[in-house]
Design a protein around this nucleic acid. Structure first.
Lengths: 336, 336
DNA sequence: GTGAAAGCGCTAACAT
DNA sequence: ATGTTAGCGCTTTCAC
């Protein structure tokens, strides 16, 4: 049988309300009685039931975090930062990772009355209306990767990928590269593909001869894993277009791309320079080590929770923009 | 205001019990009334509240999955398989990943009344008593990686890592290797380090000259990530001991180890053969591709859920042993 | 076939 | 300072 508050109350010779007051530490209870109650709690190994509590409090102290690829260590780190910050505030985190059916989670969030949700996934994976619907149902939301969101409804934390791409391009340009390919994985047709925007801005600004012939769009379902990098690099190679540097949408793709380039006998960085985004640690164990636009992912996760927490407790949405930093590896070098 | 069953009942001109009967499809309701009820549900955009339902049903339809390193794609795949199987049965999965404080989750599982838990983590990360305590509280448990568990209390799904290690050793032996190092990450002092057991059995059986001088134990907190492989490989190199092959506890460590070996000018596989366990896809993008004792991780996750499901619905624990298969890459070759 | 009512374990007025 | 009680939204007998 389940031990309830009533059992504790009976054993301690008090009412269940008194037990509540002891547990919720609003020191309304005389120390003498509190001691008796605590003893009873211990004796019965009683634990308050969160379900019943959620029922009346209208708070579940549960947060969902939705992401596409749990195996990408980039997200792994973000999750860690987010979760540890959430745990500190007493929240329990649901990690939801479904490669394609993210929408289904949203319905679940509603019927399970989550307090908040952190969605870090590219927007085509879900319907934005579904997201707003969460908000209508009283669930606070923070998004990342979704530039088009209505900031009055949801909080937002974004990486400044446009600026980061500018830095990357300028860096390669300064090394003498002119034929810089970009393997997007996403695509210029997707409005939230900020790196593509930054890329094209720099092609323009630096007056690169390739125009946008070296921008390789991704294809549905816009997967950006290692194997995709391998695939898109081969596409680049097969195109026969001239290039001396390759930027990839993320490190995972960059690592896969390097594999493809090497397989065709190209040396990195002697023949071709390669860069990624994210700064995942695996990049440092590759051969050669990967140059990347890097960031503090744990911190990013923490910050995301903070914004969500503010939203949950004060009801106000917020916005944060995160800057990336160039970390040089051995995968880039002067253009010969 | 929240839409409740009562609202629907009122609009449809029936009682809330009838609404329940419609929703739970126990066709006790005349089709004519059911139609009216469904119309009311749609009109009000009503959704049953899982919290209230959990309250009375004493089932939350929530399952926790506890793992140590979310970023290891090995676990990522297992989670995917597990989660998709769980979702099909209507369960919502909580992924819990904390590098060290796994115990805390267990308390949470109790007060949140999860129906079941899948723990795939090495046992020293949590107290086994805490695990049994879950069972006492009515939460069904399946473990993986914990050979010592009481099978009457918890279900279990294990990889046959002893056998797999035998296969790996025999394979290297047949290639002519005699000085085969094993970077355990865990350690022979940990009873659940099955690979170490298998290793020592084969050293004995094949009468390898190295005895166990080439078995490198891990150190607390027994992390087995890429950087650990790098670290332990350096330890091996620094020991000055002769070796022609290296087996690592998992692929991630093997990839890190390759980095260290190459950094000292050793060629793989010409100078040294390297093998891992798990068969993660990243291994196929490395240079050279990794030979590994591989397995179907998605299937493993599915199977884990099935066992848990049986446990939850019929109350009977179960056991499954999974076999690994040698997948050759370019990281192993004949010993010169 | 449908409705009334009790109860799941808790919190939060409101009484005492 | 402590107890009583009315819900929270649902399921489930048990009547009708």
């Amino acid at each position: 049988m389940k031990v309830t508050r009533a059992d504790v109350a009976r054993l301690a010779g008090v009412s269940s309300a008194t037990v509540s007051n002891v547990l919720n530490e609003n020191n309304k209870v005389k120390e003498e009685t509190a001691v008796r109650v605590r003893a009873a709690i211990k004796e019965l190994d009683y634990r308050p039931d969160m379900i019943a509590r959620s029922m009346v409090m209208k708070k579940t102290m549960q947060i969902g975090i939705v992401l596409e690829n749990i195996s990408n260590p980039f997200f792994g780190d973000i999750v860690r930062g987010f979760e540890s910050a959430a745990n500190e505030k007493g929240y329990f985190v649901n990690i939801c990772t479904g490669f394609n059916k993210l929408d289904d989670y949203f319905d679940n969030f509603i019927i399970r009355r989550l307090d908040g949700v952190f969605v870090t996934a590219i927007p085509y994976k879900f319907k934005i209306d579904k997201l707003y619907h969460l908000v209508d149902k009283g669930i606070k939301v923070i998004v990342s990767g979704n530039v088009g969101a209505d900031f009055r409804k949801v909080s937002s934390i974004e990486n400044n990928h446009i600026e980061a791409m500018h830095i990357a391009m300028q860096y390669l340009y300064d090394l003498g590269h002119r034929d810089i390919a970009y393997l997007s994985g996403l695509g210029r047709n997707l409005p939230y593909d900020l790196r593509s925007i930054g890329y094209r801005e720099m092609v323009e600004k630096l007056n690169l001869p390739c125009k946008d012939s070296l921008l390789f769009d991704g294809k549905f379902p816009y997967s950006t894993d290692m194997m995709d990098g391998f695939h898109y690099a081969n596409e680049l190679l097969d195109s026969g277009r001239k290039f001396t540097a390759v930027i990839c949408v993320n490190d995972l793709m960059a690592l896969g791309a390097m594999k493809a380039l090497k397989a065709r006998g190209l040396r990195i960085p002697e023949d071709v320079s390669v860069m990624g985004f994210d700064g995942i640690s695996y990049g440092q164990y590759w051969e050669p080590t990967l140059t990347s636009m890097s960031m503090d992912k744990i911190q990013f996760g923490k910050k995301a929770f903070e914004l969500l927490y503010t939203n949950m407790s004060r009801g106000s949405t917020g916005y944060f923009q995160n800057d990336l930093e160039l970390v040089e590896g051995q995968s880039t070098a002067k253009c010969r």
